[in-house]
Each structure stands twice: as C-alpha cells, then as structure tokens.
C-alpha cells in the first residue's frame, strides 16, 4: 500500500475525532492545529472505540473509560496511560488528508511488558 486520500482536510476539525476506512483499514483522524494525525480506531487499553470514548482538548486525547491520556502530536502516554497511540504518517495534498498505510497498525493486547 502507499499514500491514500482519507478525506478533505476541512472534514477533520480540531478537538473532534473523525473515523474513516481506507481500503478496509479503519483509522481515526484528528487535527492537531499544524497538521493531522491518524491512529488505529481503538483505545490501546481495552479496545474501546475512541470515536465514542475519546475526548480531545488542547492536543491531549483522553479515553473516557479509564482516563488514559495521550499527547496527540506524538502519541506518547500521559498520566495513567500505559501504552502510546500508534501513528500512521499523514500529509496534506490538494485539500485532502493523505495517510500512509503500509500495513494495518494494531495494538498488542497481550503485550506483557510491565515496566
């Protein structure tokens, strides 16, 4: 796979989560002010769909289930979160958000790393 058009840039508003499916791969898109970020659709904690459970404010995303939080620009965990968000590369082209999908990124829910 390669760069794919996800949706018009104007469809991805700040502090909102936009869900799209590209060639069968589900992603969520957010607007971080000076660009966009694309992540897998679920929370790395317990697979909750972030489109419903994610709260975005000031480039911090919070999952309202157990309050895991991430820096939306880097995906790095904040506060109680134990795992980062995985990120697909994105760019803007001709008014579209383009997402680089080589293979579907998935969280390892059996990951037994404890530190």
């Amino acid at each position: 796979m390669s760069w794919k058009a996800a949706c018009p840039t104007g469809d991805v508003k700040q502090d909102k989560i936009k869900e799209c499916t590209i060639d069968g791969v589900e992603i969520i898109l957010v607007n971080v002010g000076d660009g966009f970020r694309a992540y897998p659709p679920v929370c790395p904690h317990m697979e909750q769909y972030l489109e419903g459970s994610g709260i975005c404010a000031n480039n911090v995303m919070t999952c309202d289930r157990h309050l895991w939080q991430w820096d939306m620009k880097t995906g790095e965990p904040l506060g109680p979160a134990e795992k980062p968000l995985l990120i697909y590369d994105t760019k803007e082209e001709d008014g579209q958000v383009m997402v680089f999908i080589d293979e579907e990124l998935e969280y390892d829910f059996d990951d037994d790393d404890d530190d």
Binding site: I55, A57, N58, T62, D64, L67, W68, Q69, L78, G79, P80
Partner: peptide, 19 residues
Amino acid sequence: VDALIRPLILDSKIPADRI
C-alpha cells in the same frame, strides 16, 4: 459518573490524575 467525566476534562480542563 460518565456524564461528569467529559465536561470535567473538556470544559473544566481537569487533568485525569485529579479525578
């Protein structure tokens, strides 16, 4: 509880570790 978490984080900007 669910109805409170969203506005606390979004509107009142309370950090998650203070809830």
